[in-house]
Design a protein around this nucleic acid. Structure first.
Lengths: 199, 199
DNA sequence: AAGGGTGTGGTACACCTGTACCATGAGCAT
DNA sequence: ATGCTCATGGTACAGGTGTACCACACCCTT
């Protein structure tokens, strides 16, 4: 058995994600995934016994991709990293402004309806935002100590608000209500207001 | 034909919305809707020729319900209405904090995936937020002129940010990441920060 | 050389989906 | 009374769904 299981699983899971991105999860039948991945239906069943398992694995991979993108953005944000550059990097990395972020955001959106109502998926999907929110809150707290952010702001509330705003902005972009650049402008306006003026 | 068409349509559409709320739209088959409404499958077909039509009509009704709720909140906000009370009323009315708003938010969420990718639904769903955003922006602008809001804030950006934040907060509540009260606390914190302190 | 697990293919099965079709009362106009 | 349109019921049909089952070829171990 010289086949690399992980490789095949990745190949199939990413086919699922591709379909979720372009046509939505409702079009991601086992057969469609198999065709997209260029394998037989049986193989999809073989590597992921059930559809639920495939969905869950693909969602985890999507999370990893987003994490990698955020890391990349944070690293590219500037040396030395300041709280402001870090927060800005993370939040802008989530916004659907380029091809990759649009893809990721759309795919997450495709999962959204599915996640509600399925506690198994729910746990998987809420763990990451919780950590992220705490991290952002700490960054804002640090910015407060260095005087960049007004002391009367509550770091936890502010972090939660910013993250929710980015989420909402992302939705509005996907819904065609706003362009990605417009959403970015809204975000930067609020960041400018939170930290000192322009930069 | 002494039957009231509008009444029957309402009965059926609301059955659809009830299913969308409790089990998601993927469980809202024509048969399920018929059963929920207590009518035959044929009748659902009769009053809404196609499923698409039923979905669209129900979505419009949902929009009307939300609009009614917002109106109610705004009227109850206080006399005379101030920009702050109006903005607060509208935004809190959207947040899933009580049974009705939870129902409305959940049902909108159920539509979310469907709306993306279907331009027909998209137009119907983005018209309302656009108007709302403009209205909020004007309220904030008025608050600026009376000195309640700092003049360096951009009303349009601020309105867009707040609305997006409320949207995102709603999602996090539905996802079980936060309680409705916690979301409300985040919102009021930001409103307090936007307008003068507490009240 | 034999055997057994592993990877793969094809296919069948039971079920659910939206929609189309046929039929039948009931009230009203002629 | 005789039609006619409206409102309703039942059911059939074609297609797609996830999953289960059967078969076979390979390679590694014994």
């Amino acid at each position: 058995m010289p086949v690399d299981h992980e490789e095949r699983r990745k190949q199939i899971a990413e086919a699922l994600l591709r379909i979720a991105d372009t046509e939505g999860l409702q079009s991601a039948s086992m057969r469609a995934v198999a065709a997209e991945a260029g394998v037989s239906l049986r193989l999809v069943q073989y590597y992921f016994t059930t559809k639920q398992a495939l969905l869950l694995d693909a969602l985890a991979r999507l999370g990893t991709q987003l994490q990698a993108r955020m890391d990349r953005f944070v690293r590219a944000a500037g040396t030395p990293p300041t709280p402001r550059s870090t927060v800005t990097a993370i939040l802008t990395s989530i916004l659907p402004t380029d091809a990759e972020s649009r893809r990721i955001t759309r795919t997450y959106a495709a999962y959204y309806t599915l996640v509600l109502g399925d506690p198994a998926l729910e746990k998987q999907a809420t763990a990451q935002p919780d950590l992220l929110e705490g991290f952002l809150a700490r960054q804002i707290g640090a910015a407060q100590e260095s005087g960049e952010v007004a002391p009367e702001r509550d770091p936890v509330m502010t972090a939660a608000g910013l993250l929710a705003m980015v989420n909402g902005l992302g939705s509005s972009v996907l819904g065609g209500q706003r362009t990605g650049d417009a959403a970015l402008a809204v975000l930067t306006h609020h960041l400018d207001e939170l930290f000192g003026e322009p930069r």
